[in-house]
């Protein structure tokens, strides 16, 4: 299972980076979302995988490591905040400049 999990992390990261390398803002934002998935799973994996071991006292031992879980929980919420902020930046860029390219290039004209 660990190998599959690692492959998932790798694929999510690769998809994230590929989309971030696109030329328009929207794919870049989706790419960042994918990258967040990958990073969150990676952080989660640092607690090692365990089945039927929810870290709730009173459940049968052993427990999964709760610390990476707490870290990832806050990371999930923060990445929502980050996505929302870059989203409005992308909208702002599009509405102000008339195009949604990410590269700075003064030679390009607005499209709309």
């Amino acid at each position: 299972m660990e190998a599959l999990f690692a492959m998932a992390i790798g694929l999510l990261t690769a998809v994230g980076i590929y989309l971030m390398l696109r030329l328009r803002t929207y794919p870049v934002i989706l790419g960042l979302t994918f990258l967040s998935y990958g990073v969150n799973l990676f952080l989660f994996a640092s607690g090692r995988l365990a089945v039927n071991a929810a870290p709730i006292i009173g459940y049968p031992q052993p427990y999964a490591d709760p610390l990476p879980q707490a870290l990832v929980l806050t990371a999930i919420v923060i990445s929502f905040g980050m996505t929302a902020v870059i989203m409005i930046m992308a909208i702002g860029g599009y509405l102000e400049a008339g195009h949604d390219r990410v590269d700075l290039d003064d030679t390009l004209e607005p499209e709309a």
Partner: peptide, 27 residues
């Protein structure tokens, strides 16, 4: 580029998950 990075992360994640932590977790 994306593939190299993804492979690196996957490898690292696998290497991490197949080893017990070097130090006891503070949790």
């Amino acid at each position: 580029v994306a593939g190299i990075a993804g492979a690196g992360v996957a490898w690292l994640a696998f290497a991490m998950m197949t080893r017990t932590p070097a130090f006891d977790p503070i949790s």
